[in-house]
Structures are given as structure tokens and as C-alpha cells.
Computed example of a mutant assay.
Amino acid sequence: MIRVLIADDDALVRLGLADLLDGDDGMEVVAQAADGLEAVELATAHRIDVALVDVRMPRMDGIAATARLRALPHPPGVITLTTFDLDEYVYSALAAGADGFLLKDTDPAEILRAVHLVAAGSAMLHPSAARRVIDRYHRSGRDRATAARSRLDRLTPRERDVLALLAQGLTNADIAGRLHMRESTVKAHVSRILTALDVTNRVQAALLARDADLTP
């Protein structure tokens, strides 16, 4: 059972998400927060597998809350909820450790899929918005690109292949299909990639790959 925390200052949004998630037999909404600080407090008190976190909230915004959630001894996966007019905040949330983000008008089935993916250790970046946001707000300078390429030099050629596809938002199963590998082998490669690059999750690895202009 995936234990979920919903953090949003809009009571109607919380209610709608809770109804959606509780309708999935594999999920349980165990806590709801009206602001970022309350979200951190609840995640500290309860075992949370995945947190859905709004960007703009009182007392503590979603970016700060994400960093605090990811710093917990048993950190939950974090999915940031946003709208297109908040694009400039999304990269900061991902850099803080979010495993991905969804637009608030995302199809309900995709929201459920995202929670399952993040709970399983994958990432969920809204396909079109991900590229738009990262390309717009994460343009690499020469020094940053040089540093990123230096870190990618730690990887084997096969790990670079995996990382290039991971940076496109593909799941382990998708990568396995593209590279004709077992999914368990891809999972092992991803684990080594995160360790070698000294990053905490797939999203940060993807951002580093984009800094280095890594292409499949």
C-alpha cells in the first residue's frame, strides 16, 4: 500500500486529490497539509511514501518543503504540483529533490500513474512541460556544462546510454526496451549512475545530463 501525503493550501484541491487517490486500491491518503511547514511536520510523524506538494503555499512554500522532506531520515518521493504560470519555480523544486512534477490539470489516470512510478523509485515529469521548463530555466553556461561533462566522465559508455534515455523521462521498463536489456539490469545501472554522479534521484541526474548536452 502506497502511503500518500497531500500538501495544498486549497481545500478543494486536497479533497479532489484525496478522492482520486483513495479510489486506487493500492494507495492510502494518510495525511493532508494546508502549508509546507505542516507537510514536513506530518511527514515526520507518519511514514509517507509519496508526497504531492503544491508550489505556492503559506508559511513554507513547496520548494522549501520539498528540500525539508527530502532531508528526512526516511524521505518520501515528492511530486510537485504546478500550473504553467508557475514554470519558473519548477526547476528550483526539482533541484531541491522533487522526483518530478505534474500540472494541476493533468488527467487523473496520469496522476495515479505518477504516484505509482515515484513510489517504485522512478520519476514522473510531465512530458511536454518538462522539456519546456528545463530548457527555458536551466540553460547551461560554459562553466556549468564543463563541470557536468567532467562528472559524466565517471560513467561507463553503457551507463551514459541509460542516462541519456533517463533524461528524456523514460521509465526503467522503457529504457530496457530501447536498449534490449532486462529491467533489473537497468535498475542496477541507474543506482550506479546516481552514486557516481553524487545526486539523490533520477531528476537531478537528468538535469545534470542536460547540462552536459548528453543525447542518446
Results as ranks from 00 to 15, higher is better:
43 A>D: 13
73 P>R: 11
83 T>G: 04
49 D>S: 05
36 G>H: 04
99 D>H: 15
85 D>R: 13
136 R>W: 02
201 N>W: 05
67 A>H: 07
45 A>Q: 15
22 D>A: 13
53 V>K: 13
196 A>V: 07
143 D>F: 09
209 A>C: 12
39 A>N: 06
69 L>D: 01
90 V>Y: 02
165 L>I: 01
212 A>C: 07
13 V>T: 08
91 Y>R: 13
183 E>H: 01
55 V>Y: 03
146 T>K: 06
44 T>S: 04
203 V>D: 01
175 I>V: 10
201 N>Q: 10
60 M>C: 12
149 R>H: 08
197 L>P: 07
56 R>L: 13
85 D>P: 10
115 V>P: 10
116 H>N: 07
67 A>W: 04
25 D>Y: 02
177 G>A: 11
74 H>Q: 11
133 V>W: 05
35 D>P: 14
155 L>H: 06
152 L>F: 10
32 Q>N: 04
127 P>F: 07
17 L>A: 11
45 A>N: 11
211 D>H: 06
89 Y>M: 05
139 R>A: 10
32 Q>V: 08
65 A>K: 01
120 A>G: 13
75 P>Y: 06
66 T>I: 11
24 D>T: 15
199 V>I: 03
210 R>D: 04
40 V>D: 06
48 I>K: 14
125 L>R: 07
82 T>G: 04
166 L>Q: 11
141 G>I: 01
166 L>H: 02
215 T>V: 15
174 D>Y: 02
197 L>W: 08
47 R>P: 02
143 D>A: 14
151 R>W: 06
21 L>M: 08
64 A>W: 01
204 Q>V: 12
59 R>S: 08
213 D>K: 09
100 G>M: 03
141 G>S: 15
29 V>L: 02
143 D>T: 15
52 L>G: 09
167 A>L: 03
60 M>T: 14
32 Q>Y: 02
197 L>H: 10
50 V>G: 07
195 T>R: 00
60 M>Y: 10
109 A>M: 10
3 R>Q: 14
24 D>N: 13
55 V>E: 05
142 R>M: 08
50 V>N: 10
140 S>N: 03
4 V>I: 12
38 E>G: 01
87 D>S: 13
36 G>F: 08
42 L>H: 05
197 L>S: 02
215 T>A: 10
93 A>H: 11
198 D>E: 12
46 H>A: 08
108 P>L: 02
63 I>C: 05
84 F>H: 12
3 R>M: 00
195 T>H: 09
87 D>C: 04
148 A>C: 11
20 L>A: 04
193 I>Y: 05
85 D>C: 05
44 T>K: 02
80 T>P: 06
215 T>P: 00
202 R>G: 07
89 Y>K: 01
72 L>G: 11
203 V>P: 00
165 L>H: 14
147 A>L: 14
88 E>H: 15
132 R>H: 12
69 L>M: 02
57 M>K: 00
137 Y>G: 13
35 D>N: 14
83 T>K: 01
148 A>V: 13
69 L>R: 01
73 P>G: 08
83 T>I: 10
132 R>V: 14
87 D>R: 08
50 V>E: 12
177 G>I: 00
21 L>H: 01
